[in-house]
Design a protein around this nucleic acid. Structure first.
Lengths: 226, 226, 226, 226
DNA sequence: TCTTAACCGAGACGGTACGTCAAGTCTTCCT
DNA sequence: AGGAAGACTTGACGTACCGTCTCGGTTAAGA
């Protein structure tokens, strides 16, 4: 699912990837026949492993394609064939690590759900190399439109989709008004946390998680008197 | 106040700066005998101008010291004598532009103050090149500890200091409880906005400003029922 | 005669080529049984055509097997199966073009024969792409022992064999002494011309041809007084 | 005199070289003031030494700029700043070795002079790495116009200039006709020898030297009967 | 008719070297 | 001693080809 090539920003190799997964169905459908020698899955794995290693050691900026190739025992071209930039490679490597760490909790109350969710996020970014990677990636995305788009599509949106479900459940339970702008709520929740992650001015404590959730839950439950 | 050299993170040129401020003269007077040719203020200005130009054109990552030097008609060493890294240079250039755009409003209500403040920030980052620079700087700070520290010290803290005053006034007016954690409030306020700036998933509209402020003000005014 | 495979310097494919042309007879001879799909003659032709095109456009050094394959609509392996190196391929392509342009004249006098022969050579190398190819090939042969050997065997020797006949006829006619070293004569004749071709310091004019022949003929007819 | 940079085919660094030679006259003349850090002579020497080593080991084609740089303990850019191509670098390295080995003999007779001269050339190309380099250079010059021009200018012409003097002395002595085309004579002399060097079909023996000279001397002394 | 062997085009593989760029430092002459 | 210039070493960039190796698919001759 999180296979290589998916972060591709160039156009070229899409078909190959698609063919590798859909492929050769008996139906006459669109798979365009994967000609030539197929891409080596072992190379995929070696590149991913080397990338994660270097990402943890030195961050996105400190890592070079050259060294990824050398550690993976792979030619540079083999990497460039799959990913169009360092950022895309790093993002794919990051995704594999980060994604499954973000569960969809269901505690029965909005407060409980938000706390669990934010706590999981905080844990992932403070206890694993994912935090550094995430900061680096957001940094790299500032001057790489493609990377930014891919980040939104592959990291941000899937997460937010999960989170919207939590809010929808709270609405269904009558905890919060139906008209609540879910986007704003999510920006407040993760924005505050990401702020501390990126700037490092204050620590991401459990206390912080609780306070943030408290303000938000209170804020949307009882609209302020004008 | 925002003169060159102040962002220095490396060790090299410190002495000069220190000498400029502290003494070393045997005499009681302050002047520490500035031997040699004094630094050219014209060079300072030319470097700043060239940096701003390039920053707007290409962002922090796309700009090279080499080109700044060439555009400013200045030797590379002249830049390195004043700033220890690309980030430090960019930050100084950014500060001159950004700082004065953040006023301390006093509308009489917390809601009004927060709105005015956040709106000013949004305006600055969406209507001027400052937005791009800010994102780039935060990005660069992810793999540059010195730059990160300087950013907190020179950009973040001064701003937050202003904002704490707003909150203190609200407490004094009895609008919000005295025990309110001002840091959390500020992280929510600017975290949400910065989230949208950095990730670009949604626009920074006036509506967004209003909604964010509304949730926060409500959240801290009336603590949620357990 | 100038079919593909003949320039092979490696050992591998010899048998195949031989079998393809001779062989397969029911007779008791050693026919090694040419099993499998026979080599495509169309591929041969396409490769030759593409090679000649590129040779004329860019010379030996500027041509890549990769592009030959692509222009010929052929896999790289199909080329490597037939020729062991770029030089061998280029030499075969060159031979087809060059060989038939070198006739064996018979004017009745040594002077006439030499003139006709050298003039034909000069014409071939100045009026057709053969000149450039020849220079390139000799150049490539400087660091490719196999190519050098093949060049001598397939280009130089056949030509010199022809030329020795001219000299033998002159000896038979009594024009020149029987003890004349034919090799030295030929080295003088073609060495001088090739010198100008390779170095390009002076043009290969008819006047030059005449003068060269004149000196040589005079030099071998009447040995200099000690 | 044979300093680096002189073989430059690009335009850039000329001034430096010029300044190095003309330079700094007290007069107001054209010296363009050699600003910036001067080029390191030690780097020059290290590059030359490494180039000669590799040239002898592997020839022009087998040598890479990358390895020259690494052996010389020098950045690639430092080489590219001085020479525009591998050929130019090799030629400069070759020149230093080859040039002084070609004396101007004066034996009193044309035959003696030519023999001495050709023998010296043969000795240089068969007994030292110069022979291989020379072949390689001529080969490389086939697809490098700049290199070819430089070769003619720096290697061929100086040598021929010397040789023309020998012929002029022979004319002055009345050994050969005043109208003799000296260019043709030289092309015959060195063409024949170079032919054997480049193609390697026959050895460059003393016997060969003698025979070649004999034919040429006889050929120009007594014009053949029509 | 069915193997089976060698071919076919395509294209990925691990590599090497390319020529360029920018980094931050050093060295010269000039002010 | 600062300044402009431009050299220095280092190291990564992304590209082009190298010669080899799979793929899925022909195309014969021999069983």
């Amino acid at each position: 699912m999180a296979g290589p090539g998916t972060t591709e920003t160039g156009a070229a190799a899409r078909e190959t990837g698609a063919a590798g997964r859909g492929a050769a169905g008996a139906s006459g459908a669109g798979s365009p026949a994967p000609r030539g020698r197929p891409r080596s899955e072992q190379a995929d794995r070696a590149i991913m492993a080397a990338t994660l290693e270097l990402l943890a050691e030195r961050g996105v900026a400190g890592m070079s394609i050259e060294e990824v190739a050398s550690r993976a025992g792979v030619g540079k071209a083999t990497i460039y064939r799959r990913w169009s930039s360092k950022g895309a490679l790093a993002l794919d490597a990051f995704l594999g690590e980060f994604k499954q760490q973000q569960p969809l909790p269901d505690t029965g109350t909005l407060r409980g759900d938000l706390r669990a969710e934010l706590r999981a996020w905080v844990r992932a970014v403070t206890r694993t190399p994912a935090g550094r990677m995430l900061g680096d990636l957001i940094g790299a995305a500032q001057h790489d439109k493609d990377l930014a788009a891919t980040y939104r599509e592959r990291v941000l949106e899937p997460l937010r989709q999960q989170h919207r479900i939590m809010l929808d459940r709270a609405i269904a339970r009558g905890e919060i008004p139906a008209g609540t702008d879910r986007e704003v709520v999510l920006d407040l929740l993760f924005g505050a946390a990401q702020h501390r992650l990126l700037l490092g001015h204050l620590p991401l404590t459990d206390r912080f998680v609780r306070d943030v959730v408290e303000v938000i839950v209170a804020g949307i439950q009882s609209p302020a008197p004008s």
